[in-house]
Design a protein around this nucleic acid. Structure first.
Length: 236
DNA sequence: TTGTGTTTTACGACCTCC
DNA sequence: GGAGGTCGTAAAACACAA
């Protein structure tokens, strides 16, 4: 049986040599893997070896304008023309999926192999998906930066207020000391009691660190909660 | 010119759906 | 089981700095 031109794969991996047979009339192939030398392997014989693949040479649709050429008996990979790419892009813009009839139609219009059209759509979908992911990432990062900025602002506000609180406490302490030094009479004693009560209240006031240490700040933020709802929505 | 990084084309493996 | 999907990747084509 004539398998046509034998194209030898350049890769010899894991002690196996891979050959591709292509027939002159079609682009189909069969792959033959021969064990060529067990001793030359890396000593991991039981490990599954990933075969590197030889690209299939495409003999079809060679009608394309001058972008198919042979180099040393091998057909080189074709780059689609600008016009073909534009048409494919237009088609992709209309519909990302490619049903059989549409594929045949586009292929016929562009003088391409239907398989090429299918592959182009597959790759285009992958690129589109990557782009979408990048956009989502940028959006999320932007939101994250905003939240972090808000956190910084609030933290500095907390520091400022804590400082004010300590100043006020000092002021009260000084006042109560001064009152204690004054001679005792009915009106001053009532003042003293008020001052002491006030001090007592301040001493009971919780330190901000004690309150917020155990809860990540961003979890208290409304934007954070909204973003969590957003992601929940994406993954259900 | 050449080395190197990126993009494009193509394929195999695997999965899902009808 | 076949068609068409995604995913990962090989390799050609291309861009560009050194």
């Amino acid at each position: 049986m004539d398998h046509g031109r034998l194209m030898e794969d350049q890769m010899v991996l894991g002690g196996s040599q891979v050959y591709h047979y292509t027939t002159p009339t079609q682009s189909s192939q069969c792959i033959m893997v021969n064990q060529i030398d067990g001793s030359s392997s890396s000593g991991e014989g039981s490990k599954p070896v990933k075969r590197r693949r030889k690209r299939r040479s495409k003999g079809t649709s060679a009608t394309n304008e001058g972008d198919v050429g042979e180099i040393g008996g091998m057909l080189r990979k074709r780059k689609l023309t600008d016009e073909q790419v534009n048409m494919l892009e237009y088609s992709f813009g209309n519909e990302h999926k490619l049903e059989s009839g549409r594929k045949e139609k586009i292929a016929a219009e562009l003088g391409l192999d239907p398989r090429q059209v299918a592959v182009w759509f597959q790759n285009r979908r992958a690129r589109w998906k990557n782009k979408k992911l990048e956009e989502e990432y940028a959006k999320l990062k932007n939101h994250h930066d905003t939240v972090v900025l808000g956190q910084c602002q609030l933290e500095s506000q907390v520091l400022k207020l804590t400082e004010q609180l300590h100043e006020a406490q000092n002021e009260i302490r000084k006042l109560s000391e001064r009152l204690e030094e004054m001679p005792t009479n009915s009106s001053s004693s009532s003042l003293s009691v008020e001052a002491n009560d006030a001090q007592f209240d301040f001493e009971l006031a919780p330190e901000p660190e004690t309150n917020y240490n155990n809860i990540p700040f961003y979890m208290l933020d409304n934007n954070y909660l909204q973003s969590m709802e957003y992601w929940d929505g994406l993954y259900v």
